[in-house]
């Protein structure tokens, strides 16, 4: 079998659709990882022991094990206890939770770095503990940790390829679809790599723009 890149253009639309799904999965998982990351961070720092320790245990487990293993647990494991998630949902949840744990770690350090005076300033106005955390502490912490969280989102984009292993339709799986018809793996995986690279460039540019906009100084 020789290399023949002329067959790639006829699958252009397919790869484009795959790219669209990859972007959608990355975006959905990014939002999930961000929201859950904040939640985990707040619980880990302020929550009652009854929830704090289970969350820490969960974080410890998810940081110490491979993402692929976690995806297998969520997709093949949950169905055995009666939770039948569609592959797409399993993929987004798996990616989202995995990166939530890493985001939570970063956000926690961001929260610790917020000046104590901010807490006192809000409390003396009469804001409750929860209002202060939600409106004053977390918004500042999140702004200060956007660069490292952005790095996590870049990692998330690339790791989204893993959900093809549990059968989620995205860029890697559409490349495999083309391969199953043409038997030209080299060309199509390379084409997929190019697509990932371009999406990655876009994401990096977007993150740089965001960092510039929310820069915060006292």
């Amino acid at each position: 079998m020789t290399l023949d890149f002329t067959i790639v253009p006829s699958y252009f639309t397919l790869l484009l659709i795959g790219s669209g799904w990859t972007i959608a999965i990355t975006a959905a998982a990014a939002v999930l990882s961000f929201v859950v990351g904040i939640l985990f961070a707040v619980i880990a720092l302020y929550g009652p022991a009854l929830v704090r320790y289970p969350i820490r245990l969960f974080a410890w487990l998810f940081m110490g094990t491979p993402l692929l293993l976690q995806l297998f647990l969520i997709y093949f494991g949950l169905i055995q206890i009666g939770i039948d998630l569609p592959a797409f949902a399993a993929g987004v949840i798996g990616l989202g939770l995995h990166f939530a744990v890493y985001n939570s770690d970063i956000i926690q350090s961001g929260i610790r770095a917020v000046d104590k005076g901010q807490y006192e300033g809000a409390r003396t106005l009469g804001l409750s503990r929860l209002q202060t955390i939600a409106r004053i502490i977390v918004p500042q912490a999140v702004r200060s940790v956007i660069p490292p969280i952005g790095n996590n989102m870049i990692a998330l984009l690339k790791d989204s390829a893993l959900v093809s292993v549990i059968g989620v339709t995205e860029l890697t799986l559409t490349a495999q679809l083309a391969i199953s018809k043409t038997f030209h793996p080299f060309e199509f995986y390379l084409a997929a790599a190019v697509c990932y690279y371009v999406i990655n460039l876009g994401l990096e540019a977007g993150l740089r723009h965001l960092e510039g906009r929310v820069q915060l100084s006292r």
Binding site: D115, G117, G121, R123, T124, L125, G126, L127, Q140
Partner: peptide, 29 residues
């Protein structure tokens, strides 16, 4: 929280909220 709404306080280091504008700082509470 009720009581503190009736007791204003100003600090040495201002403790303004840097992520909000002047307007946001004043209207929040």
């Amino acid at each position: 929280n009720q009581m503190r709404q009736q007791i204003g306080m100003v600090f040495q280091h201002f403790n303004l909220f840097p992520h909000l504008t002047v307007r946001g700082n004043i209207t929040l509470a």
